[in-house]
Design a protein around this nucleic acid. Structure first.
Length: 568
RNA sequence: CGGGGUGUGGCGCAGCCUGGUUAGCGCGCCUGCUUUGGGAGCAGGAAGUCGCCGGUUCGAAUCCGGCCACCCCGACCA
C-alpha cells in the first residue's frame, strides 16, 4: 500500500473534542472521523485494525464451537414488549417508524431475536446445545456518549448466545467462552483482568466482565493479589473490625444545631464518620423503608434495587420525610420510627455498638444507641459500595482499586428470556422446559480504543503486531533519489512476497514530517531508506523498544519476518 | 435530566468586553522553483452564510432573546 494513494489524514494538533489518549490518537492518526456525537466512521487504517480484531474473534469463537450467523438490525418493537425489556431499555432504545406507522427499534443487542429463532428451530433436547454468534453494528442511545468509540451510540459488537438443556451444559459453554475471550485479548496483546460483575438490564444470575486495564477506563474494579477481582458496583464491603462506640443506658439526647450532614455531626460530636448511622428513607411500592449504613459509606443503588426487587425505588421527598419521621431532612434516625417502616441495615452495622443517630427531630441527635434495645433491625443486607482496602472475600487481604475498560461481558441468563418468550424444548421424557441460556458480548470497536489506551507513548500509537494496521512501514526519505526509490520498491515487493503487510510512505515530503507521521500511526516496524543506501544499508526501527539497527538491504526482509513473527 | 464550557475556511486559535471599510494568525491545501535523516525556504494562489432564527441599530462575528449542536462533570446521600 502506498501512502500517497491512501486516505490517512493525520493531524498535527489535538482536536479540541478529545480528552483521553486513545481518542486523541485515533483522530490524529486518521483512524476515525466523527459524524456526530457518539457516531464515527472508521477510516481505512482504522478499519484495518478493526478487521484484524474481528478476525481474531472469529477464529477463537469458531474454535470454541460457535456458529456465526447474521441477525437483522431492525427489530419490530413488540419483541421487546414480549421480553419485558421495553421499560428496562427505556430511552436507550433507538426507535423509528416505517411508512405504515409501525414502530421498529434499532437492535441494541439480540437476545429477543435469537430466542425467537430458538423457539421455532429447536424443539428437542437432541438439538441442544447450540451456540451462535455474530459481529454486527449495535445501536444504543447512550445517555452520555464519551471518549470517541469508547462509548458510542453506534458501535460494533460481537454477540453470542447459547442454548442448553441444563445448567451443567451452560456452565461448560460459559467456561469455553471465557477461555476464548482470554485468548482473544491475549492475542491482541493486552493486559486484562476478569471480574465478577452485575448483569444490568441483560439480566441473569452470574456474569463476568473482561477489563482491559487502563488509567482512563470508565469502570472501577477491586482486585486482590490472590487473583480475586470484582467490579466496584458488585463488590461487597468487608472490614476486619467495625467501629466500637460507647453504648449508653439509656441513650443520650444531644442538641446538634444545624448539623445535618455526617461531616457536621462528626465534627460537632467528635465522633468519626463511621460511628454515625446514616439513615436513608426510601419509598418502594406504597411503603416506606429506612436503610441504615455506616456514616462513611455510600449506598449502592444497584444493590438497593436488588434487595427490594424494585427498579423504581426512590428517596423520600423532604416533605415525605417530615410526614414519615416527624423530623426534617438530615436528622432521621432508626429510633422511634413508625411501626410500618421496615428497618434494613447494611451488614457492616452488625459490628456497631453505641451508635450516633438522628433523633427524627430538628437539631437533635442520639448518642449511645443500641440496636435490639432502642429499635429493631428487620434484616441485614449488603447495601453499600466497597472501597479500596476492604477485605478480599477469598483470602482476607486488602483489595486494590483500579480502572478498566470493559471489552467483554459474559452472562448466565438462565431462563429469563426463554420463559418470558415461551421458548421451550422437549426433554427425553417428553416434558417441556424453557431453554437455559447464556449470552456473551465483546466490544469490537471499543477494543480498538482499549488497545491504544494501553499502547501509546508521547509520539503516538504503538500497535501490538497482531492488530497493527500494517506490519512494516517503508520510509524512503528522498523520493526523488532513484537509488532510494529502487531500493524501496524492491523491499516492498520482497516483504509483500513473504506475506507481510507493507505501507510505503512515498510522499515527497520533508523527512521530519514523515518520521512524525510514522511515529504517530504506530506501525510496529519501520525501514528507513536514506543516505546509507549507497552502501546497501537500510535502518530497521522497532517502534516499541526504540531500537535501531543498520541492516544490509538483502537481509532486511528476513530480519523483519523474524521480528514480526507472522504465522501465515 | 441538572451543572459548566465551546461554536469564526480542513485542524488549532485571535478578534467580541468598548458595534464601523475588503474578518485575521499558525498549520494544512493548490502552482512554481529550491530543499531532502526528525513537523524545510521563497514567491504566488484557493478556500469562511462568523452554529441557526429573530431583535436592537444607519451599521452586528461583536449587544439582546430564543433555539440547535458539540465537549466536560454529575448521574443519587440525609
Amino acid at each position: 500500500m502506498r501512502w500517497s494513494e491512501s486516505c490517512i489524514p493525520t493531524l498535527k494538533e489535538n482536536p479540541r473534542e478529545a480528552e483521553i489518549p486513545s481518542h486523541m490518537l485515533m483522530l490524529r492518526a486518521g483512524l476515525i472521523k466523527k459524524l456526530t456525537s457518539g457516531i464515527y466512521t472508521f477510516l481505512p487504517t482504522g478499519l484495518r485494525v478493526l478487521k484484524k480484531i474481528e478476525r481474531i474473534i472469529r477464529e477463537e469463537m469458531d474454535a470454541a464451537g460457535c456458529q456465526e450467523l447474521l441477525m437483522p438490525i431492525l427489530h419490530p418493537e413488540e419483541i421487546y414488549a414480549d421480553s419485558g425489556r421495553l421499560k428496562s431499555f427505556g430511552p436507550e432504545l433507538f426507535k423509528l417508524r416505517d411508512s405504515r406507522g409501525r414502530v421498529f427499534a434499532l437492535g441494541p443487542t439480540h437476545e429477543e431475536v435469537i430466542t425467537l429463532i430458538a423457539r421455532d428451530e429447536m424443539r428437542s433436547y437432541r438439538d441442544l446445545p447450540q451456540t451462535y454468534y455474530q459481529i454486527l453494528t449495535k445501536f444504543r442511545d447512550e445517555i452520555r456518549p464519551r471518549y470517541g468509540v469508547m462509548r458510542a451510540r453506534e458501535f460494533i459488537m460481537k454477540d453470542a448466545y447459547s442454548f442448553h438443556a441444563d445448567d451443567e451444559c451452560l456452565d461448560r459453554m460459559y467456561r469455553r467462552i471465557e477461555k476464548a475471550y482470554r485468548k482473544i485479548i491475549e492475542r491482541c496483546g493486552l493486559e486484562y483482568v476478569i471480574v465478577e460483575a452485575e448483569s444490568g438490564y441483560i439480566g441473569g444470575n452470574e456474569s463476568h466482565e473482561f477489563m482491559v486495564l487502563a488509567d482512563n477506563g470508565e469502570d472501577m474494579l477491586l482486585s486482590c493479589m490472590c487473583g480475586y477481582a470484582v467490579n466496584l458496583e458488585k463488590a461487597s464491603a468487608r472490614v476486619s473490625d467495625g467501629f466500637r462506640g460507647e453504648p449508653l443506658d439509656p441513650y443520650e439526647k444531644i442538641s446538634t444545631p444545624g448539623a445535618s450532614t455526617i461531616e457536621q455531626v462528626s465534627e460537632f460530636l467528635g465522633v468519626p464518620d463511621e460511628g454515625i448511622v446514616k439513615t436513608l428513607l426510601y419509598k418502594t411500592g406504597e411503603r416506606n423503608v429506612a436503610v441504615l449504613v455506616p456514616g462513611d459509606r455510600e449506598v449502592n443503588d444497584i444493590k438497593l434495587v436488588r434487595v427490594f426487587d424494585d427498579p423504581d425505588i426512590r428517596f423520600l421527598e423532604p416533605f415525605e420525610i417530615e410526614e414519615a419521621t416527624g423530623g426534617p431532612v438530615g436528622f432521621s434516625g432508626p429510633v422511634g420510627l413508625p411501626e410500618d417502616v421496615e428497618i434494613v441495615a447494611d451488614t457492616l452495622i452488625r459490628d456497631f455498638e453505641g451508635m450516633v443517630a438522628g433523633a427524627n427531630r430538628a437539631d437533635t441527635h442520639l448518642k449511645g444507641v443500641v440496636a435490639g434495645r432502642d429499635f429493631e433491625i428487620g434484616r441485614f443486607e449488603d447495601l453499600v459500595f466497597a472501597r479500596e482496602g476492604d477485605l478480599c472475600p477469598d483470602c482476607g487481604r486488602g483489595l486494590a482499586l483500579s480502572r478498566g475498560i470493559e471489552v467483554g461481558h459474559i452472562f448466565k441468563l438462565g431462563t429469563k428470556y426463554s420463559s418470558s418468550m415461551n421458548a421451550t424444548f422437549l426433554d427425553d421424557k417428553g416434558e417441556s422446559h424453557p431453554f437455559i441460556m447464556g449470552c456473551y458480548g465483546f466490544g469490537v470497536s471499543r477494543m480498538v480504543a482499549a488497545a491504544i489506551e494501553q499502547n501509546f507513548d508521547k509520539d503516538g500509537i504503538v500497535w501490538p503486531m497482531s492488530i497493527a494496521p500494517f506490519h512494516v512501514l517503508l520510509l524512503p526519505l528522498n523520493t526523488g533519489d532513484e537509488t532510494v526509490m529502487n531500493a524501496a520498491l524492491k523491499l516492498e515487493e520482497e516483504l509483500a512476497g513473504v506475506g507481510l503487510e507493507v505501507l510505503m510512505d512515498d510522499r515527497d515530503l520533508s523527512p521530519g514530517v514523515k518520521f512524525k507521521d510514522a511515529d504517530l500511526t504506530g506501525v510496529p516496524l519501520r525501514i528507513t531508506i536514506g543516505r546509507k543506501i549507497k552502501d546497501g544499508v537500510v535502518e530497521l526501527f522497532h517502534r516499541k523498544t526504540g531500537q535501531v539497527d543498520d541492516v544490509a538491504i538483502d537481509d532486511a526482509a528476513g530480519k523483519v519476518l523474524e521480528i514480526a513473527g507472522i504465522r501465515d
